[in-house]
Design a protein around this nucleic acid. Sequence first.
RNA 1: GCCCGCGUAGCUCAGGGGAUAGAGCAACCGCCUCCUAAGCGGUUGGCCGCAGGUUCGAAUCCUGCCGCGGGCGCCA
Length: 584
Amino acid sequence: MPGLESLLTERLRAAFAAVAGEPVDPIVRRSQRADFQANGALGLAKRLGRNPREVAAEVVAEARKGGLSELVAEVEVAGPGFLNLTLADGALGELASSLVGDERLGVEPAAPDEADVVVVDYSAPNAAKEMHVGHLRSTIIGDAVVRLLEWRGHTVIRQNHIGEWGTPFGMLIEHLLDIGEAEAAEELSVGDLNGFYQAARRKFDADEAFQERSRARVVLLQGGDPATLRLWNLLVEQSKRYFMSVYDRLDVRLTEDDFAGESMYNDQLPATAEELARLGLLREDDGAQCVFPEGFTGRDGDPLPMIVVKRDGGFGYDTTDLAALRYRTHDLKATRLLYVVGAPQSLHLQMLFAVGREAGWLAKGEGESPRAEHVAFGSVLGPDGKILRTRAGASIKLSELLDEAVTRAEAEVASRNPELPADEVAEVAHIVGIGAVKYADLSTDRNKDYVFDYGRMLSFDGNTAPYLQYAHTRIQSIFRRAEVTPESCTGPVRITEPAERELAIELLSLADVLVDVERNLEFHRLCHYLYGVATAFTSFYEHCPVLRADDEATRASRLALCALTARTLRLGLSLIGIKTPARM
RNA sequence: GCCCGCGUAGCUCAGGGGAUAGAGCAACCGCCUCCUAAGCGGUUGGCCGCAGGUUCGAAUCCUGCCGCGGGCGCCA
């Protein structure tokens, strides 16, 4: 069952076409003055050279013939030619009732011919280094992408492109040898990745002999020397264990199987370079073998290269990314490739995709497959509006940031609800604290930077996770009091009060929102929608008694609305990786 | 220098060509014999960065400025 907006659009499309003699978008939107409005008559009248109000009236007459009245109680031609649509209470009740029995809340899975094989590249921390807020955004947004697309029925392949093959590993391995394996393992196992990295870095900067050893070690590593690989593996395995502990806390779907780091492409790099050469895309420039994708110029107006083979004969990240792109389309058979990567890498990814198209790994035409998208995101800022850092200027450890959020949530939960037993407080605090961090990240336009503020994200007012979670717990509380299970609340839904109308309209709009977000991956639109559901519910909650409803039929209807609201909130939040406690 | 992103209420943010630009916070005024007041209702608060243009209609699209952030060859 489509959402209300799609439903109205479908009903009106035929009427508009009849008047126009050609397909016309009715342009249906939510309205301040009615439930919905259709704006299509204005543009159509212009094209026909006719009076817009007359055209609008004709559309209404056609629509009535087509049975619009079953759904819409009142249609008014307003202003210069808007159609104001007020839905019929009876139809709203019926639609809501049918949603009650629908496992998927009106959101159908993607049709088989529209189902993609989606490769999602996200999280991507660097081995032997601490995760920071940049990885937080990629991890959280990527997780939401994965959850939504899987739920919509696409095949989703997660790729955690960790950095474990770069030049710093020579230095890290030499440092490991210096302090001894046992010592290193211990240091890394407690999660002090930064300490280890910085110690190595300091030696590298200060000691020329160490630099020499490090460079030699990189050559050994990338040449496949077994002893070096064993040490490298030690570092990487410790890092992976640490990353997994963070993922578990964050409750994201990344697993050990999803690690697909740079090293994985090592033996595909020569073949990738050869293929580009065979395609005639490679050109020597300043000693390096480069591809110059069409339309990119640099500082001095010269064409910008992707460097496929470096002057020294080695491969850099351009080649690794090209090999990964090739692998994902050739071997993983991806039809949609998503790169959940910060906005600063926009140019790099545009060039990568351009080369991908020139090489024939990606489709050339707009909307054809395989296609790649940069799911870009802005930076996390501190209260000063600058990139979030500690007072000392260091980047903030992700694990400490999560600790702080959970600690603050715990204090709130414990003081607000003293009756909760201690173990439940801890559990709820985790759900609320982590949920608040995720929601704060996802609820604003991801392209923009956002200001990180514990107080605001943990507030129970406004567009926050705790507000949505609280709305959900209030519903659960009603079911506990009523001593019924939500599943038994099947209605039927009957709409009489304005607050019931508002809530029903929100609940019947989920499909429109999810279909939209599936395409643009702008999760703040889903958040905004869920906030609308929650505010409509709390208003309903204040104005429409459920347990003390006037009669049994009203009570049954309102219980069904409660059950639907709870399911909608739970589903919506689960699709962005946020849990809903039963009490808080 | 060129390219990308962003400028909306005091603050944090929504507004995908439509009517009188919306939330939350902050400030002020109300509401618990009542399903969790972690809530609800209301008031105050806007040259939508500036200037042109396209359009019946622009916060939204285009151009140029201004401001902020970021990127621009062998690091990832």
